[in-house]
Design a binder for these strands. Sequence first.
DNA 1: GCTTAGAGTTCACTAGTTGGACATAGACGG
DNA 2: CCGTCTATGTCCAACTAGTGAACTCTAAGC
Lengths: 403, 403
Amino acid sequence: METPGSQSSLHRANLERVVRAVRLAGSLTQAEIARTTGLSAATVSNIVRELKDSGTVEVTPTSAGGRRARSVSLSGDAGIVIGVDFGHTHLRVAIGNLAHQVLAEESEPLDVDASSTQGFDRAEQLVTRLMEATGVDRSKIAGVGLGVPGPIDVESGTLGSTAILPGWTGTNPAEELRGRLGVPVHVDNDANLGALGEMVWGSGRGVRDLAYIKVASGVGAGLVINGRIYRGPGGTAGEIGHITLDESGPVCRCGNRGCLETFAAARYVLPLLQSSHGTDLTMEGVVRLARDGDPGCRRVIADVGRHIGSGVANLCNLLNPSRVVLGGDLAEAGELVLGPIRESVGRYAIPSAARQLSVLPGALGGRAEVLGALALALSEMGDSTLLDGTAVGALQTATPAFT
Amino acid sequence: METPGSQSSLHRANLERVVRAVRLAGSLTQAEIARTTGLSAATVSNIVRELKDSGTVEVTPTSAGGRRARSVSLSGDAGIVIGVDFGHTHLRVAIGNLAHQVLAEESEPLDVDASSTQGFDRAEQLVTRLMEATGVDRSKIAGVGLGVPGPIDVESGTLGSTAILPGWTGTNPAEELRGRLGVPVHVDNDANLGALGEMVWGSGRGVRDLAYIKVASGVGAGLVINGRIYRGPGGTAGEIGHITLDESGPVCRCGNRGCLETFAAARYVLPLLQSSHGTDLTMEGVVRLARDGDPGCRRVIADVGRHIGSGVANLCNLLNPSRVVLGGDLAEAGELVLGPIRESVGRYAIPSAARQLSVLPGALGGRAEVLGALALALSEMGDSTLLDGTAVGALQTATPAFT
DNA sequence: GCTTAGAGTTCACTAGTTGGACATAGACGG
DNA sequence: CCGTCTATGTCCAACTAGTGAACTCTAAGC
């Protein structure tokens, strides 16, 4: 069945080429498809017919302006994907279609200490509710992307260190959700998904090499290299939170001293303000106070920024990305934290690496991870879900918007 | 002419598939080619005939053992590639064929302060001499890989900071050599080429993600990610020498303080031994003395190792490679330096990242860079030199042994 | 209303892969 | 020593799929 060098494989590649072109552009006429893909008009004509028959694509008879151009676009209801994001304090679900449009999105608070069963129950309920709200049939689900706030082995789907999610010890979140929803579930950690989300929909659009730094209760980074999430052979790439900034600094939960995390993560930073600002402060609260002018909070945030900048400088020297996107609660602080980051990067990175680097706040806020989960589902579907007429009848390109 | 989705492109892909299979295996019968590539026997038959006619491949009429299997192998003289490596104190040239065999190799001392013209003259002479020694016709040269010991913009071929190679200011080494040899020249810096060399022929075989750390007069790293050299959008990835280990450490030539380089590079380390061991010490000398038991040299090398280990730990946390290969003069120290590196990595990297990391000495010694230059020439030839019957008549696969 | 130019379709042609038939040649057994 | 067997490589007819050219269609512009 698999004939890797045959004409049919060429045909499939051409189908994917067309779908990718349409997805990137939103909608195109056949002539435009022919120009952008380099295929001949005749071939495009055949391919579009085939895609139309399989329901992957919609042809709107008359378009704007011109002579008689029929515009081709991905049919929104050919299939949908679902993104699920478990955070430390929330659960978030989004539903999108193959055209990269978000149809519905909702979040609700969720206690970290909730048992995993309870978490999955809530997730399933929320998915069901949103599916009903959008009115799409459940059989249309083509895939699910799942985000968890901790180290996870993408291959096996098992959680790494379970110290972070105590209630989840021994569970396999992807398997769990697959069992409940009956569709393939792809899982990754929150930093990687944030990177993916910002890359497809947010501050990382058009960039092939970026680092997404998420500062929350921990500090993590999602790395995009050559347009793809890079996880490393062991799956633990991006652990920027545990690079050493000061060998004799505070002891970190990882067992070392002076990790970036001990200078930047909420659990180490908030206590600094306890005596002056009370004990029930959150990172969000600190950011809000800082924006309102509170000098102590401003100082703390600037210090955090400087330390993050040191870490980012090391990252730049090693990887030389063209963009760094800051996510997590801290990103809300805007220039209050970005300024010090840029300053530190300018000081500690070699000039040629820092020169063409831009440091931006994430454009998606807390939505980055769910949307990244959507993107994960879309991209993973890529080459596995073929258009074999059956099932969703959908045809997806590999790495949708990553070209 | 370029029809990205046509049958001819499929045909070309199949040609490359066959050549790649043959290259990886050394020699194969047609039936074996059919099995490994998944193509049908008939197609293989046609392709082999075509390749034989174009001179890319040789068919030895009778092979070992079996019925009547004719074994197919790359014809050694279908085309050759040349690697040229400029070091701080030497010039090295190697000649190889398309079958990944090194035909000749030679090095001679070269003063860094030599004018660039003199350097290129010497390189041209050495190439000519080796070509005569191997008896291969000059027209067979398919490509040249060139290594320079400093930052270079691979796209434009221009040298970056010329502080390191003062006599070379304003030259474009690739252009220069292209002019003299009349063939395409591809250039990269020494660390990247060392990584490539070790990956194809040395300690990095079979690994898709590795870092090659070269410690010489400076400290640099060549990163291999997903089987390809990663240079970063700005071309300066791998600058591990300038990650900050100690914010109040010694001032580095880059303008910062406490860079890894100030603890590990020859120019900063050798002075430590001046008062006790005299002034005309080289890194090689220190390594030799250390191996012979000199306690001062041992201590210095161990300290260097510990600092390198700190840098490598940061690199592991960020990139999580499966292997780190140590190159440069320092690698000769073997366990004297690798031990402390491993120890530091174990201490400063998070356990899950360090767990499946192996730290090995380079297997190629000072040859890593030239051989990497060969590999660069081979891989760059890949998709640009098509088999259009003309010229070398050669057909190369993209990224020869990197699959 | 006529012309025109770009859009999409049809058709004959061609490139290229495939399965099956066929020839070949060594190995094995009698 | 000879027939049989088996795997190899080649040839041929069938089939798949892309392409250029001719053709049709529509709306804009004069």
